[in-house]
Simulated scan of single mutants.
Amino acid sequence: RKARFPSGLVLARWWLSLLLARTDMLWRAAIVRRSTFVRRLTSLSPHLWSKIGQIDLQKTTSVDLCGKGLRATEMDAIALELSENTQLQRLDLTANGFGGDGAPAVSQIVRSCPTLEVLALGNNNLRAGVVTLAEALATHERLRVLHIQANVVGPSSVKTLATAIASAPGLEDLDLSSNAFGPVGGVAIAEALASSASASSLERLDLTACAVGMRGAVAIAQALSGEGVAHRLRSIEMTTNFIGPDGLSAFATMLMGNTTLEELSLSDNAIGELGDRDTGTCGQALAAALEMNQSLRVLDLTFNNLSAAATQALVAASARRAVPLELKF
């Protein structure tokens, strides 16, 4: 007698039941994982879930928590979650105001997330809390972008931060704007720029409204023109720093030997407030530098009350350049 095999219909029913069972098992597993995630977050902080929304902090590559009103204790909970994330690349904590008490949590995040590339910490009132961050930042190999604007960072704190920046091997974009750390901080930043590590990687620096003054501006300009250091800096913002004519002259000297800088903003720096004689002299020096320098593409000198002689000299020098230059007065 011939062996009897199941018909095609029976086999189809068997495969369908197997597929449905497998699908049901996967669905139940997903529900369990989701419910576990919800319980984990809600147990860490009663209000955290409602603030951050449905974000699995242990899985995502980009976390945007800008303006969520996070407190320092909630930052501890977030740091605990992110410490399990092995693929985090971007973290935005701008405008939360968790203060210096939240700095240890941010430091923990930096240490536990070696894949982190972009960190935004602006407007958080960190103050001396940046000192806590410094060591973690110095040893992080993949961090490319660091924004710490408007955090009331003082002179002593920025000195520690600058030392860490000097050791950061891959930092490309640094925003320290709106931290009035003054000339002492400006000199500290200059020393960091003169180091081989930061010089070889940093491409953008924003020091808008940091009150570095003439002393800080001269130190920074000298650091960017120092011999033996191969700089990659392409853009520097020095708006509203009260650098005066002497500061402008220092940047003019720097431009004569610099071959990488493409954008320079010296807007609102009281360059023309000492009279036509001083402004005209430094304007002539800057004009000579512009003819020699062929890398600069944008120069912002707005709100400086420049003398007519200085303006004319700069326009004439710009016209004689082989590379076009956008001059802003």
Rank of each mutant, 00 (worst) to 15 (best):
S35F: 10
P104I: 05
V32L: 14
K51Y: 01
A79E: 06
W27A: 04
D76L: 13
E84M: 05
D24T: 09
E81M: 12
H47C: 12
F98P: 01
D101T: 01
G102K: 04
R90P: 00
G53S: 04
T60C: 12
W49P: 00
G100I: 01
Q89C: 07
L88Y: 10
L48S: 03
Q54D: 15
S107G: 15
K59F: 05
S43M: 08
G67F: 04
Q87V: 12
V106T: 01
D64I: 00
E81G: 00
L80I: 08
K51V: 01
P104T: 09
T86C: 07
Q108A: 13
H47A: 14
R34Y: 15
L82I: 03
E74P: 09
Q87W: 06
L44S: 11
D64R: 06
D76K: 12
V32P: 00
G99C: 06
L41A: 08
G67R: 00
G99K: 05
L93Y: 06
A79W: 09
L91F: 07
L57P: 10
T42Y: 02
T42N: 13
L80F: 14
G69I: 06
A29E: 15
D64H: 10
R40V: 05
R71H: 10
A103C: 11
I78Q: 00
F98D: 01
S45T: 12
L91M: 05
S83A: 15
C66R: 15
D101G: 05
L88F: 09
R40P: 01
F98T: 00
L44W: 01
R111S: 08
E81T: 03
G67A: 01
F98E: 02
Q108M: 11
I55A: 03
V110A: 04
I52S: 03
R28M: 11
R28V: 07
Q58R: 14
P46D: 12
H47V: 11
S45P: 05
A103F: 05
E84L: 04
L91K: 04
T36C: 15
M25Q: 13
R71P: 02
V110L: 14
D92L: 03
G99H: 09
N96W: 03
L91Y: 05
Q54H: 11
T94H: 01
D92N: 15
Q87E: 13
R33C: 08
T94G: 00
V63F: 10
E84P: 00
I31H: 14
S35E: 15
E74V: 01
T86P: 06
L80S: 14
G100P: 06
R34K: 12
R90W: 08
S35W: 13
Q54K: 09
L70D: 07
G67N: 03
Q87R: 13
D76N: 13
D56F: 04
A29Y: 14
L65T: 02
S107T: 01
R39F: 09
T61K: 13
P46T: 10
A77S: 14
L44E: 02
Q54Y: 08
A105R: 05
S107H: 02
F98L: 01
S62I: 11
G97L: 06
Q54A: 11
I78D: 02
Q87L: 02
S35H: 13
N85A: 06
D24A: 15
D76P: 10
M25L: 15
P46W: 05
L26M: 08
E84I: 00
R90M: 12
T73G: 07
E74R: 06
S43Q: 10
R39V: 03
S45K: 12
R28H: 12
R90K: 14
K51A: 02
T86R: 12
P104Y: 07
L70N: 09
T86I: 10
